[in-house]
Simulated scan of single mutants.
Amino acid sequence: MARIADLVAYPLKSNDGVGLDCAEIGPTGALRGDRTYALVEAGVDPDEASVGANGGYVNGKSEPALHRLRASYELADPADATPTAVTLTRPGRPETGAAADEHRFALPEDGDALAAWVGDYLGYDVDLVREPDGGLPDDRVAHGPTVVSRATLETVAGWFDAVADATEMRRRLRPNVVVDDCPAFWEDRLFADRGEAVRFSAGGAELLGVNPCQRCVVPSRHPETGDELDGFRETFIKNRRATLPDWTESDRFDHDFRLMVNTVVPEAEWGARLAVGDRVTVEGIEALDGALY
């Protein structure tokens, strides 16, 4: 019987997450407060930017030095990850002249100061942008919580001698919901073919699983140093294919560098809450609105 083991939100996109006991689903279906803030290159419109490398967002894909920042948050509410303040810690960077430092920024009022502080560390100007309603997720269609199983994290961590454990793999993959009491790759049950969705319940909320997440360079990088693990993609693909369950069959799974599931939350479920310990139950496959994938 699958259940929610961990809930994690990322109030400042591409920075450390924060664990939650309970999380409310906000407008557009994201966990409330998840990716509320993001860093972009100075002058970039976040609505026009791409989350890919060199797409305008200052994220782990484009800026390995971002991994060396540590973030802790003060939240609006135990079930709302919108940060009212963030404390950032940065190491020294002799190449940019930035000294090691720790600073607390109240949000949103200290947003410009935060951007200047991070820009000083990186060596170029950045802006802090804010989307208080739906956040700034990578997937602009399927805004819902991303889902993976703890057994998957443990299995994939075991593919790499340099990855310490499932917790490190979670930090590399950055899911919102970790499910326990189920086998590795159980989350692959939460997507079907194109044009279809898998309805599943988590506590009192119902979500639609739609797409296996295409991975990028970020999981190959150490979550605290940004150092890249040589051969990560090749090892991942080889082992993903070798361990692929029968239930992963889907025309959405069109290559082996996919892991974790993107979801959509129907509007009627906005405001519902997910909590650690909630049962997760697959309800069935249904047609998906043509506007979504």
Rank of each mutant, 00 (worst) to 15 (best):
A2E: 07
D6C: 13
L7W: 15
G17R: 05
C22S: 15
G33M: 12
G33R: 12
Y37S: 03
A38L: 01
V40Q: 08
P46H: 10
P46R: 07
N54F: 15
Y57C: 08
N59W: 07
A79F: 14
P83Y: 13
L88Y: 13
G92T: 11
G97C: 14
A99I: 00
A106W: 12
L107T: 01
P108F: 13
D110L: 06
D110W: 01
D110E: 10
G111F: 12
D127E: 15
D127F: 10
D127A: 10
V129Q: 04
G134S: 14
G135Y: 13
D138I: 05
V141R: 13
H143G: 02
H143F: 15
G144H: 07
V148S: 06
R150M: 08
V156W: 06
V156P: 03
F160W: 11
V163M: 05
A166P: 06
T167V: 06
M169N: 02
L173D: 01
L173C: 01
R174I: 04
P175G: 07
V177W: 13
V179R: 14
P183V: 11
E187H: 06
R189W: 00
F191V: 13
F191S: 09
F191R: 11
A197P: 00
V198F: 01
F200H: 05
E206M: 03
N211S: 11
V217R: 01
S220D: 04
T225W: 02
E228S: 10
E228H: 02
T235W: 07
F236P: 09
T243L: 12
L244Y: 03
P245W: 08
F253M: 10
H255S: 08
L259N: 09
M260V: 08
M260D: 06
P266S: 04
E269F: 08
E269R: 00
W270M: 03
G271F: 07
A272I: 00
R273H: 15
V276H: 10
G277H: 14
D278E: 15
R279G: 10
E283H: 06
D289L: 02
A291R: 15
A291D: 14
L292K: 15
